[in-house]
């Protein structure tokens, strides 16, 4: 995030708090793709991500007064988005009494729809689904959305060193999961050949 973007956001937030709905509109336009991206990476479904993005911006609309300005607006916004997504995942879990999608609900390996839903390679999507939530969040924000580690740390409310370590460990687990898929696939092919 550039300084000018942060400055612009600060100005827009101030204008919005003064009653300018146009300012809110501009804030939303500036960040909606990134927010949707974060939501999609976490929710793994475009419709669910759209719902989460909607809820995120409504939360911003309703609670902008609670934004203290100590961090960048985008940091606060991404925190709201991340929390919203996990709240919604918890609700889904409660409704279905099933596992959290990002932890133990890998996509159907044969499903093209899973790929289309999040625009990721299916093997990568499956590997991501094996990550624990704290690792998943870190890798989504740092590696998939490209946020600086300092901002990821602020979004998730943990020290930057912790985030760095989580990102490294997440990558390691991701690679292991990718390797395991390759190994399983080779084993299946070997069985078929025999």
């Amino acid at each position: 995030m550039t300084a000018s973007r942060a400055d612009e956001d600060s100005l827009l937030v101030a204008q919005f708090l003064d009653g300018s709905l146009q300012a809110f509109n501009e804030l939303m336009a500036a960040h909606e793709d990134r927010v949707f991206g974060i939501c999609l990476r976490i929710m793994r479904d475009r419709e669910a991500a759209l719902d989460a993005a909607q809820e995120t911006f409504l939360t911003v609309y309703r609670k902008a007064g609670k934004f203290t300005g100590e961090s960048a607006f985008s940091t606060w916004l991404f925190r709201v988005a991340t929390n919203t997504c996990y709240d919604q995942l918890r609700k889904i879990k409660r409704r279905s009494a099933g596992p959290l999608p990002d932890a133990t609900d890998p996509a159907d390996p044969q499903s093209d729809m899973a790929f289309l839903a999040v625009e990721l390679r299916p093997d990568l999507q499956r590997a991501l689904a094996t990550l624990a939530p704290e690792f998943h969040k870190a890798i989504v924000l740092a590696d998939m959305e490209g946020l600086p580690l300092q901002q990821v740390a602020e979004v998730l409310g943990v020290p930057v060193g912790t985030i760095k370590s989580r990102v490294f460990r997440a990558r390691r687990q991701l690679a292991e999961a990718l390797r395991n898929q390759t190994t399983d696939s080779e084993r299946r092919n070997g069985d078929n050949d025999a």
Binding site: D33, F36, G37, L40, R41, E119, L120, R121, L124, A127, I139, D143, M144, G146, A170, R171, R172, L174, A175, L178
Partner: peptide
Amino acid sequence: ALASLGDVEPV
């Protein structure tokens, strides 16, 4: 991991 994540397109 970095190579795999490097292929990810922005949403």
